[in-house]
């Protein structure tokens, strides 16, 4: 079977007036199913840029990208809405929950906006199970602004997993959390990786987080250096 992610010669250039900023200069990267990978690198090295391309939020200027057997490098943004919805879960640095929806509604949101949403009762049962798994069972009816940062990120994790995606992308998921909470969140992600076999790929600055990863990638000057994790 092919790799889950297969990136070849990915380049990303930003045109800024007359000058061109190069964020990625020829990234080759393969990620297998079930991996737990972190991407590190100094600020401005291109971590976010890479994750955005992998998440089908942005297009590479050059190179090819095959996600779960689908060549997505030539397809446009709206065309990829379904791919994002079904194959990818997103966890953001600043949680990005929808403020008017409660915890349960936030978790089920990616499934609820589908063209043919599954039966509401079945969906709710899955939401409840997932909420229980991430420790949010007592908070299902709470609004995001009634939760702590760590709790919000747990909601985001549950939201990323509700679609049973191939891949969960997290751009600096612990940057807005204190160190104890960060550890707990990383532990949770590791456990879910082990239990459910979901592939995790995330970026971080935090060395304490890096030490948990099975595989650590270093980005420097827009190029990837693969280094073994623990």
């Amino acid at each position: 079977m092919s790799h889950l992610l297969d990136l070849k010669g990915i380049e990303k250039h930003y045109e800024l007036g007359k000058t061109t900023v190069t964020a990625l200069r020829g990234v080759d990267l393969q990620v297998e199913r079930g991996e737990f990978t972190v991407v590190t690198g100094p600020s401005g090295s291109g971590k976010t840029t890479l994750l955005n391309i992998i998440g089908c939020l942005d297009r590479a200027s050059k190179g090819s990208y095959v996600l779960d057997g689908v060549d997505v490098s030539e397809r446009d943004f709206d065309d990829l809405a379904e791919v994002r919805n079904q194959k990818i879960g997103f966890i953001f640095q600043s949680f990005n929950l929808i403020p008017v929806l409660d915890v349960a509604e936030n978790i089920e949101f990616p499934c609820a906006v589908r063209k043919n949403p599954e039966d509401a009762k079945k969906l709710r049962a899955r939401v409840n199970a997932l909420a229980k798994r991430v420790g949010l069972e007592p908070y299902l009816r709470h609004k995001p602004d009634e939760l702590s940062g760590g709790q919000r990120q747990r909601v985001a994790i549950a939201r990323a997993l509700i679609t049973e995606p191939r891949l969960v992308l997290a751009d600096e998921p612990t940057a807005n959390l204190d160190s104890t909470t960060s550890e707990a969140i990383i532990d949770l992600m590791l456990e879910l990786n082990k239990e459910q076999g979901v592939t995790f790929l995330f970026s971080t600055h935090d060395p304490r987080v890096v030490k948990h990863a099975k595989r650590a990638l270093q980005i420097q000057d827009g190029k990837i250096h693969d280094g073994a994790g623990h």
Binding site: A81, R84, P110, V113
Partner: peptide, 16 residues
Amino acid sequence: VREIGTLLAVGVRRRQ
């Protein structure tokens, strides 16, 4: 803006 970005990321279409 950021919320709209989130909607688009999780697969909500532009028309929606």
